[in-house]
Write a protein that binds this DNA or RNA. Structure first.
Lengths: 133, 133
DNA sequence: TATTGTTATACTCTATAACTATA
DNA sequence: TATAGTTATAGAGTATAACAATA
């Protein structure tokens, strides 16, 4: 029983219950844009750990779906600033709510002591995630 | 701070540090074959939560890479039995070891009480994962 | 007819290499 | 020349629909 396998199993399960229409990377990128405002494409690619061409295409899809827009930088003509739209924000928040509800209802099926230990470990797991990023 | 987001962040981080050469679904499918022996293609698809055509293609890739083989069923001529090879088993175990080592070295960077609470929650998280599948 | 699996087709997502535009 | 981003190309991975073989 190791943490990596457990995380993988949990994630695979979550993914299967996620509403479709937004890939993992797309959702994660929207989260960053939601939290940290307009960002350069290169900065986004670096934060997501994907290549610049991959981010170009992802942003193109997000823009096609009206979830984000490209803007020019006044300071540097080469730079593209990516910004989340209201529709993007709405979709993101809706997905989060749906997913959180699903997890909550699953947790409710566990014994109380299991819930308690998971809840107690959450801040530590969060710090672990921050450590890795 | 919710569990779903934390799991997603942990998984994204793990994925980025995973050695290449085996996708998430490929690794997960090999795990099933490793643990539960030769299985029918339909059974594999159902356990992975993917469609039958998707599993056909995945098994074709695994077979091409010599990680699994197709076998005929003596009892039913329609059935394909998928079996992990020694090379598949070796690769799987190697990946697990590499990943477990990475997680261990990361956990070592956390305060002792964080490690303790994560360790304490692991069985509960495992049960949660089983619940979802 | 029902079940098992494959093939055909299309889309997302990713990478590397080559390119364009701006600094 | 260096940097920011795009385009070209290729491959993995997924889905739905249509098909072939076996039961």
């Amino acid at each position: 029983m190791d943490l990596a396998s457990t995380v993988q199993r949990l994630f695979a399960a979550l993914r299967r219950r996620s509403p479709p229409g937004l890939s993992l990377t797309a959702a994660s990128t929207l989260s960053i844009l939601d939290a940290d405002g307009p960002l350069r494409l290169t900065e986004l690619a670096s934060r997501e750990g994907v290549t610049q061409p991959a981010m170009t295409q992802l942003v193109t899809r997000l823009e096609r779906d009206a979830l984000a827009v490209r803007r020019a930088s006044a300071a540097d003509g080469r730079v593209v600033l990516v910004e989340i739209t209201t529709a993007g924000r709405d979709l993101l928040h809706h997905r989060r709510r749906v997913r959180a509800d699903a997890v909550t209802s699953l947790l409710a099926q566990l014994p109380a002591e299991d819930r308690k230990s998971i809840e107690a470990a959450l801040p530590a797991l969060d710090r672990l995630a921050s450590l890795i990023s």
